[in-house]
Design a protein around this nucleic acid. Sequence first.
DNA 1: GACTATAACGAACGAGGGTTCGAAGTTCGA
DNA 2: TCGAACTTCGAACCCTCGTTCGTTATAGTC
Lengths: 193, 193
Amino acid sequence: MAGAPSRPALRERYDRRRQEVVYEAAKAFARHGYDTTTMQELAATMGLATGALYHYFGSKEQVLMAICDQLMDPLLEQATELLHEPASPERQLGELVELWVAHVVAHRDHMLVFQQERHLIESGEQWRGVRSSRKAFERLVAGVLEQAPLRTDPRLALLALLGMVNHTAQWYRPRGDLSPAQIAAGYVALLLA
Amino acid sequence: MAGAPSRPALRERYDRRRQEVVYEAAKAFARHGYDTTTMQELAATMGLATGALYHYFGSKEQVLMAICDQLMDPLLEQATELLHEPASPERQLGELVELWVAHVVAHRDHMLVFQQERHLIESGEQWRGVRSSRKAFERLVAGVLEQAPLRTDPRLALLALLGMVNHTAQWYRPRGDLSPAQIAAGYVALLLA
DNA sequence: GACTATAACGAACGAGGGTTCGAAGTTCGA
DNA sequence: TCGAACTTCGAACCCTCGTTCGTTATAGTC
């Protein structure tokens, strides 16, 4: 591993290429599993030799971590921003879930990897950041749910919602006749009194 | 691999031991992942030498398949039986979900493995049986949902329910203050009009 | 007690795969 | 055009792990 170039002109290409690796890795990991996918296969997909990958990432695990970070960080940021706007609890919940579902379906591969490699993420010091991001997001959702008029106890509503939305990554197809917004509206309708 | 003994007296012990392997494997696979867990570790947990595992299973993958079969087959059977009893759609839905949730929490490790190794199960001829069992169960649930008075379109209700119930395996703790029956009732309450 | 089926051992094999590294190629800036 | 920074190559290293197999121990059966 070498690290990012300091010259700005090169930095851009470096970042783009690195991003491509993450993208292809997410696709491959989602389809064939993290352990099953070899660095050789990943390199071949990118049209690179094996060793070249280590110019962009220090290890296979760091590729996985980049996938998780790129999944969680923008979601957390956008959700925080959204909840800064004052609005009724129902409306906040609706917009939050819509944002969330849209994010999940836009990053389906990332999500599937995130779910499949749960056992890795749960244990291990280096995964602490990812775990706390997820926790922070869950707290945001919990906060909104507590304000909204629900049909069930807020704790169960949170767990149910987490299950519904995360599971969306496993069945959503872009060509399907349900848009992310419709899906989100459906979920919210189940929860609200 | 040797196969089951023909003498009935030994057959019983063989089956019991084999079952222990499945149980320990589910626990280890759920915690550390299927690929990460080695046959050496699994054997050591059982107090066996490595090669002895192959007396009970022809391969590591067959252990995984036993886990999946033991998860799906009883569930499918019990659900089928339940739905043979005549009852109102609401009541059938309630009982089915209660049975389902109880099964999921009683076989949490099996469930977690089943979810984490989705990519393996999705592809591969040898997994056809497991896939069709899951599909059959989903059809059972779909059939009940179509009869019941729901708050949303039955397709989305099915997907939402699948997400909620399956996700239960990830957070349920026996010492928690929600019983499987309460959880199931909460889920059903969300769906019914 | 001897014979046989069963159970377990444990070392070794063989393949696969993550990672390293020094050299070669390429691109940028002056 | 030249030199430095950057990118890529690709073979080799080294270790892990699933699986095999000949042998040894154990337990039912007559």
